[in-house]
Design a protein around this nucleic acid. Structure first.
Length: 562
RNA sequence: GCCCCCGUAGCUCAGUGGAUAGAGCACAGGUUUCCUAAACCUGGUGUCGCAGGUUCGAUUCCUGCCGGGGGCGCCA
């Protein structure tokens, strides 16, 4: 890749200039390359002189001059070097490097932009909604962010495992089970009541109906304790199946499912609590067992075992972090909504207390989503079971628009999601702009085929004939995919991909408007078709990471969607 | 009260300590005998919330304040 070549050249130049500058040759930093913010600043630039100058006590421009002088001497792809501004070194390249980028893209195929396997394993844990009802929109951002993060890490060369953890053995889910139980009994004309604090939503009735359809009235007359256990198990199973189906629609495919019940059954929870005790991080008070989370910056110590003997969710969290750590991942990434930020300190503390290297554990917090419809906030009441389900959202706006919108914003920003605006198939929706570019290319390639134009192998095509500004700009944009992926992965910032996708789409549309692709000029047609193929592939890769479809064709507005 | 996030163009938002801070939308005008006009081109606006500090250099890092959102239970 050109970047590596340039960095090496710069590094050599800095080393060569080191004696003159009084720079310790052992302390030559790796120069960083950046794409200049404006034209006229060359094809690539570096601030290495600005970084080094303070240590030398010399004016940055002088340092830059010294380095730049060495660059000219030994560089082949570079046609011109310039020192500019406070001390930037701008590199001007011959256009050939862009044609080489095109060759690289075509050579690498779908591998372009994807980093070499780096032998590091990452677990990303997300969604993790408890089986007390179907997924609602509150979870949607978590699912979209977590999944795209997993995708981008994978693209950057990490070995990624997607995990979903759920609490199916605690008080809340038991209440849910009892609510379903009540509906089940009612279904067969038995008197029953939803317990206090239970669930009243229509979904509860639905699950009860499903269970009734499956087992009939066979459970009505069995012992209530046994019945509740059976109903609870069936309800969890049913609910999780529903969640899985919704995630599937949303393009989220989980590799591993971990549950609190498993942790309990295996004794992992007791073991974790005992381990904390052995390490001196617990104490008893008023019949409950507490974890000394204040030693890790938490506001107060947290209960592990209630005075009733029941472990808390937090106790399960402790077992779970040990469980994760024991599976050999280099990075454990939790994706949580801002409503959980209060638990960060205690979980990080527990990890540390249990001997898990805190550097391996990352908790990525995203801000919450406020739902609007036509500018009006959509009020949701949890108690009445009155919230918008993810399935309904997908029915209304479609999975692609939903995912694209949710991934587009930085996790740190609260997100206003207006159902009407997102459902609208207009330019309010960059997702269609990007998908259209992909579909447009597919269409062009189809037309070329229909007209009997066969693509010659790209090695035989005169790619160097691409010299129009729009062609060069598009190539330049395509060349950025690898660093976009690398940076997005490193910063855990998948929202950079939609931005990039828009830039690629824009560059292609401009190229399309300015350069007719299929013409009488056979050689030029071949070159432009190959450029289009490369653009299509970069778009497809980017869209895949975002988690939306790359359509081969799109119908006109008003002719229905996708 | 304590904790977290945000405050950048009329709106929605980008912006790994660097050069003259960027996109889209909205608004106005223009472009199609031709590969998808869901497109393209041309128009312009910023006390980067305020005040200090660190730095050769701050929208970016630190502190305080103001404004908005969210979280703080032997609930999840």
């Amino acid at each position: 890749m050109i970047q590596q070549t340039l960095i090496q050249i710069l590094k050599n130049a800095v080393s060569a200039a080191a004696p003159e500058l009084g720079l310790d040759p052992g302390r030559v930093p790796d120069p960083e390359l950046s794409a200049p913010s404006r034209k006229g600043f060359g094809d690539w630039s570096t601030n290495v002189a600005l970084v080094v100058a303070p240590h030398l006590g010399r004016p940055p421009r002088e340092v830059a001059q010294a380095i730049a002088a060495r660059v000219v001497a030994n560089a082949r792809p570079i046609t011109r070097v310039e020192v500019a501004g406070p001390g930037f070194i701008n590199l001007f390249l011959g256009r050939a490097w862009l044609h080489d980028v095109l060759r690289e893209i075509l050579e690498s195929g779908i591998g372009f932009g994807r980093g070499e396997p780096r032998g590091e394993r990452v677990q990303v844990e997300y969604v993790s909604a408890n089986p007390t009802g179907p997924l609602h929109v509150g979870t949607a951002r978590n699912a979209a962010l977590g999944d795209s993060l997993a995708n981008v890490l994978e693209a950057a060369g990490f070995a990624v495992e997607r995990e979903y953890y759920f609490n199916d053995a605690n008080r809340q889910v038991r209440l849910y089970g009892e609510s379903v139980d009540a509906r089940y009994l009612e279904r067969f004309g038995r008197p029953a009541e939803i317990p206090e604090g239970g669930y009243h939503g229509a979904q509860v009735t639905e699950v009860a109906e499903q269970i009734a359809a499956e087992v009939g009235d066979s459970l009505v007359d069995v012992d209530s304790g046994v019945r509740r256990e059976r109903i609870l198990a069936l309800a969890v199973e049913r609910t999780m199946a529903g969640i899985r189906a919704t995630l599937d629609r949303f393009g989220v495919h989980i590799d591993t499912w971990r549950s609190e019940a498993e942790l309990r059954r295996s004794g992992a929870i007791d073991a974790a609590v005992a381990e904390l005790g052995r390490r001196g991080y617990t104490y008893e008070s008023e019949g409950a067992v507490f974890f000394r989370s204040t030693e890790f910056g938490d506001e107060k110590d947290r209960v592990l075992i209630r005075s009733t003997g029941e472990p808390t969710y937090f106790a399960a969290d402790c077992a779970y972090v040990l469980d994760k750590a024991g599976r050999g991942f280099d990075h454990l990434i939790y994706v949580w909504g801002a409503d959980h930020h209060g638990t960060v300190k205690r979980v990080m503390g527990a990890a540390q207390a249990l001997g898990v290297d805190p550097a391996r554990v990352e908790i990525l917090i995203h801000q919450l989503v406020t739902l609007y419809r036509g500018g009006e906030p959509v009020r949701m009441s949890r108690r009445a079971g009155d919230y918008v389900m993810l399935d309904e959202l997908l029915d209304e706006v479609g999975p692609d628009a939903a995912r694209y919108t949710l991934v587009s914003r930085s996790p740190d920003s609260a997100l206003d999601f207006d159902i009407e605006a997102v459902a609208r198939q207009t330019m309010d929706n960059p997702v269609y702009y990007v998908q259209y570019a992909h579909a447009r290319i597919a269409s062009i390639l189809r037309v070329a085929g229909e007209r009997g134009i066969e693509l010659v192998p790209w090695r035989e095509a005169s790619l160097d004939s691409l010299q129009e500004q729009a062609e060069l700009d598009l190539l330049r944009t395509l060349a950025e995919l690898p660093e976009v992926v690398t940076l997005a992965a490193a910063a855990r910032a998948p929202h950079r991909l939609p931005r990039y996708a828009e830039a690629v789409a824009a560059a292609f549309h401009r190229f399309y408007a300015e350069c007719r692709i299929i013409t009488e000029d056979v050689a030029r047609t071949q070159a432009r078709l190959w450029l289009s193929v490369a653009a299509k592939q970069v778009l497809a890769t980017t869209l895949e990471v975002i988690g939306v479809a790359a359509p081969e064709s799109m119908e006109r507005i008003g002719d229905g969607d996708r």
